[in-house]
Design a protein around this nucleic acid. Structure first.
Lengths: 334, 334
DNA sequence: CTGTTAGCGCGTTCAG
DNA sequence: CTGAACGCGCTAACAG
């Protein structure tokens, strides 16, 4: 790799002159500029961003920590972040934390060592003391994504309580009365919030909130399947089920199909997230859609705002929306 | 952010001593070491990898350029790469190229400027002259992933010809005789290869290779849908269809369902890639599985090998395998 | 065992 | 308009 020195030598000028044409800062005579440019081309020179970073104090890269890019909910988020970052000349370092708080800490450190200009964190259990300390005292701009926090941290999220409410109310409106919930892992704030939305809808409609009908899942297909199996073993199987995410709904759907239970004729189902996948299962899954891509871009925007001037804490919340498809729509039993 | 100087000052030693304890190189007296460590802790100091990189000539990060992380085929690949990279202390810079050759070039340049230690490229049209030149003359270690090339470049791929052959032969074995193919974009080598496998199977079984039955798609759901619509308009609809990837198969499936054509009773379908999604559509999609995760890890291994000693060109090819599920299995018409 | 010096590739004064 | 000199944070000789 040629350096700025090589270019200077070849062009017969000093390094500072090369630097000037590179950054179009200061005056450079046209002819010498051309010589420099020619030299750059000839050597196929590219300025080292890391050397630049050392002096400019910025690496033009952001870190993105998320649980698992393999989970269909996250690529959309990542893509939003990358697209937005690129608009401003930034790149994204991708980190998979596997919902493991230790890995999150590890990555938080690594990213700082790598001097990223900002970190977007889709964290797992934010309330943990040690992590909370790290987060609030981080020298690098940080925004929480798809999470909220009582801590003084920037965040982008959608209203999970309302989303849970929407899903459940839809089921109620369809005429279902015994409505179960397959929840996310209860350490997860989003899981708690969706559950609480579920509860609110029931209470508001004077339906009993029955803990027997609430099964804790893990936000994964397998967890949804297990929860569904337990639900099927209940003395009276619920008429409808609100799953705290689409993946679990898909797991539940599989179990129902294998058990010969027709959806939505015998059991209605609604998911959450609006992952692409949900549109292509059978029957098409009704779901609560989050503006995933937009959340990704918003997170980057927030970081960017914070880089140019340290803003006061912003916690932006988007609204989810109901997408009614087939799995939750009452129709006559075939 | 505190620097090594701050630590040195606080500990009352020189920066080189701090450096020594940081890298456990050279001898340091125990008591001074302890002082240094104490200072590090107190300041919460973390060495700047970018300053280190400037001298060590390595950034401990790899670039990963792929078409679109939002496409379900790629996260698995990315995850494999990240996991493997992390084992050796590397991070991954994620770049989405949207199958756009200009963006690929752009990223190739950016990644070089960022001084990544290696680049994994899931490229689109490798034969293009300008890109070919870049690729072969890249100063940074490069490996092609999920692609092969006649160029002298390292690559990891699976045997697409064989995969296409497997899929088609399976359909033939099931007793189908008019077998259509929804291909990938024909600039893409993998698309060409799968098509050629399709052809080989037909020829080998003395079935006609009929160009009318080959529709070019774009590897996306929408492309599969469009191609399927055209296939349906044919005077005689084919008995079975081999789709060059799962996404297009899903698009085709949708169209068939909307048209009231039963799968597999009236038309059999097989996809390619083995994305998770394919298991959860209805009917479950038969497909040709690629060892996606493994390909991701293998790519990083190849890069790593090349960093420590410039190896001769390796082009590693994995074998695909057939996963027969429901969409392609002959059964009586209901 | 430890401090001093030099230099990685670059941007930025400051003279000239 | 241009070059020399300095420093970013760190590692690597080289003395002591």
């Amino acid at each position: 790799m040629p350096t700025i020195k090589d270019v200077a030598k070849l062009a017969g000028v000093s390094v500072s002159t090369v630097s000037r044409v590179l950054n179009t800062s200061g005056y450079v005579e046209k002819t010498t500029e051309e010589r420099v440019i020619a030299a750059i081309k000839q050597l196929n020179y590219m300025p080292s961003q890391i050397a630049r970073g050392l002096v400019s104090k910025q690496t033009k890269t952001f870190g993105l920590i998320l649980p698992d890019i393999t989970n269909p909910f996250f690529p959309e988020l990542a893509r939003g972040a990358e697209d937005e970052a690129r608009k401003y000349g930034y790149n994204i370092m991708l980190c998979n934390s596997d919902w493991d708080i230790e890995k999150e800490k590890k990555y938080l450190n690594i990213l700082q060592e790598k001097c990223v200009d900002g970190i977007v964190l889709v964290g797992s259990r934010l309330q943990e003391d040690k992590l909370a300390n790290m987060l609030t005292s981080l020298p690098t701009p940080l925004v929480l994504l798809d999470r909220t926090s009582s801590l003084q941290i920037h965040s982008i999220s959608t209203n999970n309580i309302y989303g849970g409410y929407l899903a459940t109310k839809h089921l109620i409106d369809q005429g279902y009365r015994t409505i179960a919930h397959i929840s996310g892992p209860q350490q997860s704030p989003s899981a708690q919030q969706r559950l609480s939305g579920y509860r609110r809808a029931l209470v508001e409609h004077k339906l009993p909130y029955d803990l027997v009908l609430v099964m804790e899942g893990d936000y994964r297909i397998s967890g949804g399947a297990v929860a569904m199996q337990r639900l099927l073993r209940l003395s009276s199987v619920p008429e409808a089920i609100f799953c705290a995410n689409d993946l679990m709904a898909i797991g539940a759907l599989e179990v129902l199909q294998e058990a010969g239970v027709k959806v939505p004729e015998e059991v209605a189902l609604i998911g959450y997230d609006g992952i692409h996948l949900s549109k292509y299962v059978y029957p098409k899954l009704s779901t609560v859609i989050q503006p995933t891509y937009k959340m990704g871009t918003a997170a980057i925007q927030l970081i960017l705002e914070n880089i140019e001037s340290s803003q006061s804490i912003k916690q932006i919340e988007f609204e989810p929306s109901l997408e009614i498809r087939e799995s939750s729509v009452r129709r006559k039993t075939v």
